[in-house]
């Protein structure tokens, strides 16, 4: 029984029929890797699943219940990380995380402190985000992602701007998330070092919509 099931997804962007009848299922502990050339609709797919973009048609089932991608209950179980880290430049990393996590009702200072330590972000968490590099911002965003404790992760190019150690860290966090029964949909071309049994992939091609590869 898949936790997340997407059926008959059609999306138009302007005149373009970007996603044509896409179907996908993700079970607990599974990661769906989304690949495809630029403009094939990877970001569009993730944003539609967050309810940020409207779909022409979509049958979405989450935890056995049909729901809309804008339902509050569904949102409480998901975290979306776009390719820009959602941080205010004038606040420190700590203040940013405090706000984002308070908004989701999961702010716990000790927990966030431990995660900052683990992601090597402790030493710059008290500096204004304005002065941080793109890689450092991404690490802060990853702390926010893990600390949200959502079951469903929707990640858009999570390894952008990260060095090889950072990339390894992302796959490590992802594996732990899956082991705990989490789900993930990840748009990336980096090969994810995850147990093959937990990894599915979805290749999007522009022009004729989506095809399942494996």
């Amino acid at each position: 029984m898949p936790e997340l099931s997407i059926e008959n997804l059609h999306v138009y962007r302007g005149e373009q029929h970007v996603l044509r009848g896409l179907n996908a299922q993700v079970s607990a502990g599974q990661c769906l890797q989304i690949t495809g050339e630029n403009g094939a609709g990877k970001t569009t797919l993730l944003r539609v699943l967050c309810g940020l973009l409207p779909a022409e048609s979509l049958q979405l089932t989450w935890r056995g219940r049909v729901c809309s991608p804008q339902d509050a209950e569904y949102h409480q179980g998901l975290s979306y990380l776009s390719h820009a880290a959602p941080l205010k430049a004038d606040l420190t990393g700590w203040e940013n995380l405090r706000f984002l996590l308070s908004l989701r009702g999961v702010w716990q200072a000790e927990r966030v402190g431990a995660l900052l330590e683990r992601l090597g972000a402790r030493r710059f968490a008290d500096r204004p985000v304005r002065s941080l590099s793109a890689g450092q911002r991404r690490r802060l965003a990853l702390v926010g992602l893990v600390a949200s404790q959502s079951q469903l992760w929707l990640l858009d190019e999570p390894t952008t701007n990260l060095d090889s150690a950072g990339t390894r860290l992302v796959t490590e966090l992802l594996s732990e998330h899956l082991e705990r029964g989490g789900l993930a949909m990840v748009a990336t071309h980096v090969s994810l070092d995850i147990a093959p049994s937990a990894l599915q992939s979805l290749h999007l091609t522009s022009g004729d919509g989506a095809r399942r590869v494996a």
Partner: peptide, 12 residues
Amino acid sequence: DGTLEQWLLCGQ
């Protein structure tokens, strides 16, 4: 800066 997006996703 993408923070408003997160408001839409916080389930409130």
